[in-house]
Amino acid sequence: MTVMQETRSSPGAFIDFSPDATSLEVRGFGLRYGDKPALDNLTLRVPRHRVTAFIGPSGCGKSTLLRALNRLHDLNEEVTWEGTIRLEGQDIHAPEVAVAELRRRVGMVFQAPNPFPMSIYDNVAFGLRLQGRMPKRRVDDIVEWALRSSALWDEVKDRLRASAWSLSGGQQQRLVIARTLAVGPEVLLLDEPASALDPISTLKVEELIRNLKSSLTLVLVTHNMQQAARVSDYTAFLQDGELVEYAPTDTLFTNPRLARTENYITGRMA
């Protein structure tokens, strides 16, 4: 990790990356639901083509932060925010940024699988079709590629026209990942993607995450310490809307700097 360098310039963030290794940069970001604060003055950088995990107790703001990264809060009129978030150096809240295009570039997978009530094929092709007309062959190719990338192809290749709701929970979640991959995102946000799945499906999804990081920047929110330890390269610990500690995963789990982090981790790991 040559580009990594330790800095103490910003409060709470104990690692930093050089600008060309950074995919997402959050600076002084705060967010409120109505008059209830959810995130407070967060600053951190997410490295490109790595898996970054956000951990922390329920209500600490980790999901809120994740949703802020592709502006899913836009729909909620109660939400107000301050600070900046940059994707590849560009402010995502800038007026010239089309939010739909931003969300294409920053894909998101949710806690519960949410396939649309259409066929498997149509689910994967959904995002492609939004981008304009495309030759059928090309759509076929991308659908196959996306399903292969999410390790689902062999299970569904014979029933692409079947309803997506007929799949098992784990298959549905991988379908949702495939659907997101198909539109060619640069960043993939995963909001507790395995929390609704059985152990075997969970392992499959985790393996998928590890495979995807060669071509994608991944951000994973999870409750599960072992999962964070298993799949992520860097881990950020959030509490009460603040970033407490941010370090390479090995360091954070074996040798946390702060007592707050250690208490949480040991409490949860035990």
């Binding site: 295009e101 492609l128 304009g132 991308i142 991959l181 060619g184």
Partner: peptide, 11 residues
């Protein structure tokens, strides 16, 4: 992920 080019700005 260079699979899909960014759609034309007009669209």
């Amino acid at each position: 992920m260079q699979h899909m080019p960014s759609p034309p700005p007009l669209r």
